[in-house]
Amino acid sequence: MKDPDKPRKGFSRRGFLRGVSITGGAMGTGLLESAASAETGGAVVGPAAVSITLNINGKLRKVGVEPRETLLDTLRDKLDLTAAKRVCDRGTCGACTVIVNGKAVYGCTVLAIDAQGKQIQTLEGISPAGNPHPLSKAFVNNDAQQCGYCTPGFVVAAKAFLDHNPKPTEEQVNHGLGGNICRCGTYIGVRKAVLEAAGMTAAGGTKNA
């Protein structure tokens, strides 16, 4: 699975980019407009900042956003929720993974205004500092991180993955988390951590071969 599930409806940036790449300049704006208006109920918003309310980690947060602003940038720059990282900024690497209505999505491919009325979970809510999620602990036990920049995205993606597939095989982990990229090369640890958190393997990491 290259891409985590994304919202089916809505005017996502990824959808927009794909539309452009498939149809090139021949595409009129009508379809995009109708897609956008279907989502926003026909009201035209922007281009100036508008005030919206987002449900993040169970709390309602009011925030001013430009309609073109991604959920990721809103979280990071406006709400100081910086666990999700901006890396590729084009829906490829998974470092910005958050959970929206129970599904892992790339925060850089969702517009903040499209996330209104949805349940948004970030790593800060999933694994608070005082009460870390078992996955966060399993990532430590199995040294599934080095520089750590991809780690929050991996932990969130792994949570959504295990929510849908609580007893995965190693093969399923490999494919289920295929939408996240690590540059330091922590995959051996990630694999073990996810299996450990799923209760599929004993803790304790590795042995010198």
Partner: peptide
């Protein structure tokens, strides 16, 4: 610093 990283702190 593992837990700091894996909790996003």
């Amino acid at each position: 610093d593992g837990l700091q990283k894996s909790t996003g702190q």
